[in-house]
Nucleic acid binder design. Structure first.
Lengths: 258, 258
DNA sequence: CTTGACCCTCACGTTACGTCATGGTCTACC
DNA sequence: GGTAGACCATGACGTAACGTGAGGGTCAAG
């Protein structure tokens, strides 16, 4: 092949190296995102090492979900700094890893809910606060979740609770939710210490009123707030986006205590 | 709204709960992936809790990259077991997390390559084995990478190497690569102990011949084999898929020694 | 020279929605 | 009861990022 040098690659070689298709490379050439440095006399695309470095960066941006047009614009910026971009990409990928971890936690929570129903016990506990009736609580919940550790510990602690205790618990819960709502309404970042303080108050209430609840466990509960539609409905009914807000605040709190 | 019950949700509510669009829900209804349990008298879609559970699972499958048609087929299977599916999804998500971790490692490796060039030193060291000339090695590599720790340690060790030493090193490298190729050709799983043993031999060669190389460091090098096109080219030139194979074997070795 | 792998351009098709148009429904408030 | 704004319905064209295939040229080993 005329013009083919030792350090140039044809489209098929690049595709194999990078794990993408020839069609993708054609497409990228076509839209001006990544074209070959040269063409052979017969019209073959010839990519060199610099092209490959650029391709790697394109693929990372793609991994981050950027539209190809946006990738081209970003890399076409005269002030584009490759290392700075790589650093930023790394940060964004780490964010993605954290999100994926949360998806995993949500699936795990769903599995536990199916197997033990422990989370639903808590959900139902909070839900019954709307029109609280201790006798209804004992009957229905024990019937469904009588075997779980959390239930037994809660039952042990709450056995001696009076009506006044329950009203206090309800008031505590409402106060915590109001704090969350106020924080949301006033634009407080859910990853701030302020929001995390509210989450810590929520965790302590569970820990002190019902059963041992570590920050990690609380974080799992937080995942359930967004993953389980019934939890989500409780919070979304108070304000759109609240479930996500509370979950993030809880995760922030768990992270700062670890 | 006629027929609307307390535990049913309209399309907008579901969209907000799940963080997706109304259009997506319309689309899913349209293609038979997820339709509402009921319709109001005026034709509004009404989703119930079971619908929401199904939606969650659809979204997880989507997160895993399955085509919607395939998701519908999987969940439409008469033997579909929700908990078993959740378990499998969790495993697959964990696999995705590991892949993402590798992408991150590749970006980090690219950053280091830009900053220190240390990896390219190793790459060029291996590359020159094809047509090895010690004098060329000293000149070019020192000129480019003379400041890195790895280079200095290598230089310190190799200063007294004879031509016979170098030929031995080259033979060792070729033998290791041949072992990798044989393992690949005979279908040995790159995550097996056998493949990891070969990787360990490779690590030891670097450790003993050039510079201290821990399993973790070796794993980083392995990431470079697939992330850096020049490394990849070396291995892909021997056999398609070899870079990936070697990288996986190295990672397996690193994992079993940690 | 032949053959098979690989290259080119062209162009229609697919997937998963995004966007908008038009018109009906619901609910709080006056 | 009427109004207004939010939300619902269906229909339909458009988009992004390739996938797939057609028809024909190029390369290199045998």
């Amino acid at each position: 092949m005329a013009n083919r040098t030792l350090d140039s690659y044809t489209v098929g070689e690049v595709a194999r190296l990078a794990g993408i298709t020839v069609r993708t490379l054609h497409h990228y050439d076509e839209i001006g995102l990544l074209g070959p440095s040269a063409r052979s006399d017969s019209g073959y695309r010839l990519y060199d090492d610099t092209d490959l470095e650029r391709l790697q960066q394109v693929l990372v941006y793609r991994e981050l979900g950027l539209a190809l047009d946006d990738i081209r614009a970003a890399m076409g910026d005269p002030g584009f700094d490759r290392v700075a971009a790589l650093r930023k990409q790394r940060t964004q990928l780490a964010g993605q890893a954290r999100r994926l971890k949360r998806v995993i936690a949500a699936v795990e929570a769903a599995i536990r809910a199916e197997e033990t129903g422990m989370r639903l016990t808590k959900e139902e506990m909070f839900e019954v606060f709307g029109d609280f009736d201790p006798t209804q609580f004992d009957g229905e919940v024990k019937e469904r979740w009588g075997d779980s550790d959390g239930y037994r510990e809660s039952a042990r602690r709450t056995a001696a609770y009076t009506q006044e205790d329950w009203m206090a618990i309800k008031a505590e819960g409402e106060a915590i939710n109001r704090r969350f709502l106020d924080a949301m309404a006033s634009g407080v970042d859910p990853t701030s210490d302020q929001a995390a303080d509210i989450a810590e108050a929520a965790r302590l209430q569970i820990d002190q009123r019902f059963y041992p609840c570590s920050p990690e466990m609380h974080a799992n509960l937080g995942e359930m707030y967004v993953a389980d539609p019934r939890f989500a409905k409780t919070y979304e009914g108070m304000a759109p986006g609240m479930a996500e807000y509370v979950r993030t605040a809880i995760a922030t709190n768990a992270a700062r205590t670890s």
